[in-house]
Design a protein around this nucleic acid. Sequence first.
RNA 1: GGAGAGGUGGCAGAGUGGUCGAAUGUACCUGACUCGAAAUCAGGCGAUGUCUUACGGCAUCCGAGGGUUCGAAUCCCUCCCUCUCCGCCA
Length: 427
Amino acid sequence: MLDIQLLRTNIDAVCQRLGTRGYTLDVATFQKLEAERKTLQTRTQDLQASRNSLSKQIGQLKSKGEDASAAMAEVAALKSELDANEVRLGELLKEMEAFIATIPNTPQESVPVGKSEADNAEVKKWGAPRTFDFPVKDHVDLGEGLGQLDFSAAAKIAGARFSLLKGPLARLHRALSQFMLDVHTGDHGYTEVYAPYLVNAESMYGTGQLPKFEADLFKVPREDADPLYLIPTAEVPVTNIVRDEILAQDELPLKLVCHTPCFRSEAGSYGKDTRGMIRQHQFDKVELVQVVAAEKSNEAHEELTRHAETILEKLDLPYRRVVLCTGDMGFSSAKTYDLEVWLPGQNAYREISSCSNFESFQARRMQARCRNEKNKTELVHTLNGSGLAVGRTLVAILENYQNADGSITIPVALRPYMGGTEKISAA
RNA sequence: GGAGAGGUGGCAGAGUGGUCGAAUGUACCUGACUCGAAAUCAGGCGAUGUCUUACGGCAUCCGAGGGUUCGAAUCCCUCCCUCUCCGCCA
């Protein structure tokens, strides 16, 4: 959520920034709501002040046993206007909040302006794609050839966009998440978190999935209680740890890492990546989350992105880093780097991690604050990034480490997690 | 699933219709004392919103939402959460 003060005092600048991401702010609606709010709120508060002081007088008169009927008549005269104003003001504030809640974050100045994916800018490239002296297969042919990846069984059990892993490939999947967690906790200073996979609507609102993106979520209705939602990323439960909290200076930065399955409905994305495990309803991810003081967030964003890159480097997987252009960024983000891993089966770089700085956008929605040097409360900045998406990392390993006979060499860094196995072959 | 108890400021904890945004303790900040620290003493110290150039004023907030009342932390209703005991369970 954007700062309403900023909208009041500097709406032109906000408009301009939002314009770069193709979002047109409805200034007229905002100003109409704001004008009404201002008169109504000041009037309501004046009436409340009168009522309060009259009520106080009544109390004093009555305690002395004197006649309070004059003051009571005066309050009664205020009452109908006050009641009407309070109701209308409540509605208006809700309207205003709903309006602001659907405005996306403003991009940082350093974000390239653009309309779509095509305008994202490559920042760096690491590693050279391997040259093969045999025809490369994609991960589906490789996994099914090994007899360890079974989409038809998954379809029977659950439906399209699920996958089933067996044997060494299932172990490799587990090894990857263990490896990632160990690197981030051991080398990068993150604290491991285990969190709920089902969350309430308030949490989804806090990180920005609600109210706008309900269609992308799996919703779990309940007979006698509010519905819960399956998390689309660990970002939701982990970032919401600080919702409605005031953190002490020395608690920051908070660096948390969490491995969870992620569930995405993504009804609109059918037709794209229908083959294989690139786009699934369920996938595992190791998520990095940082909560930092406002002035530290850009620095933290670079650091966190490096932490994700380190995993790719340790696995010796070629990748590139792109900075998303204004038009391709997520709703809540002020700046996002995507890491794209090389997939020989697709002859292309494909997204494997997304690292974003949300600045105070999420913190404002969830009232996550810290005390500054003057002991005053101040919104924190939140960041997160995949470190990494486990399923896609598995895909990358299959395709990059394939051999002519269809077997897969295990990257050296993962061998300790595979009981020393160096190669996966058909059973 | 059954029975009971409870949710008040950073923490602990009083307050059962009116000078209560809330005693007291503790934590924290400032000052005095001290070479310094501790102890002691004095003062300060909630959040959010709103109006104001500012000083500051006003409003709202005692788990959440409704209700009664001139007036609600306090009374009534609904919901959420926590704890204790019993049952069940990986």
